[in-house]
Design a protein around this nucleic acid. Sequence first.
DNA 1: CACAAGCGAATTGTGCACAATCAATTCGGA
DNA 2: TCCGAATTGATTGTGCACAATTCGCTTGTG
Lengths: 163, 163
Amino acid sequence: MENERPGAYEALKLQNQVCFPVYACAKEIVRQYGPFLKDLGLTYTQYLVMLVLWETETVCSRDLSKKLHLDYGTLTPVLKRLDGAGLLTRERDPGDERLLTIRLTEEGRRKKEQAARVPHAVAGCMGLTMEEFGQLYLLAYKALAHMEKRNEEHTGGKNNVNG
Amino acid sequence: MENERPGAYEALKLQNQVCFPVYACAKEIVRQYGPFLKDLGLTYTQYLVMLVLWETETVCSRDLSKKLHLDYGTLTPVLKRLDGAGLLTRERDPGDERLLTIRLTEEGRRKKEQAARVPHAVAGCMGLTMEEFGQLYLLAYKALAHMEKRNEEHTGGKNNVNG
DNA sequence: CACAAGCGAATTGTGCACAATCAATTCGGA
DNA sequence: TCCGAATTGATTGTGCACAATTCGCTTGTG
């Protein structure tokens, strides 16, 4: 088994994986948000939805899905709960009945104040310098953009089959 | 509402969050693994467990939990499935009946060959240079280490209540 | 109008992920 | 020896996360 050429399985060692620390780091970040968001009565995913709404007031479901990289199977129940909590409303677009318009309520708007100090608090948990935050931000977005593009090519690329 | 001092809510904009691209990037990475791991008959979490076993042959449940940053509520069903698939065995440590010893089977060992090319393939999906991979790796581990330390301080810190 | 094609969402099923809780085991004293 | 505290890990309940499927709506074509 170990008579292979040396390093044949080096890439499989956990220490040599780039993906694992990113994956573990993301989970750890969500966990750091936990206590702060509990005060707001939100989960991390619900908080992401609220971030978008605090910025735009209204958004259609399709755009929300694209912005947050979440599909409808995830968003539908999340939006139902936030609607149930009175933080947003869901209504069909009169112009196109397929589209769902999500709108921030007054109660949802009030949460914005409480939430304002959360990002800084969580950033402090991570122990990175400003410069490191900047690097991490750019690297994550660069990888994200590349993978996003790949996905589009592979699903939209069906047309390429026929030349 | 917008009469606040300018920038009071800047930190709440999705674009200004560092956490979001890391979170989205991690999910996107797991998705990129999908097709490759499907050939192996593994999910991403199951693959992580196998990575550890391919390296160490045996591991106790506590160490696995710490290495992968996963608690028993997550690991127990994952290990059950991998046991059911014949890739590992679970047995109690004779010396300490609380400990669970997880052992790679011959069938599990065979999967290692198929898996050997997966890391490189996924790395290619991310579109980063070698240098960028190195940076991302270091930044993620640095943040991870800092948050890990914080967690220990806060749970072990119960004793501080009594002075 | 009729109808095929394709999109937007909802539903269903599987598998994490973790908090909270509980049970069993071990260990440290008195 | 026996009791109390700490550790390990299994269970339960909630909430993502996504693939696959389904259904209603819109749009393009004749």
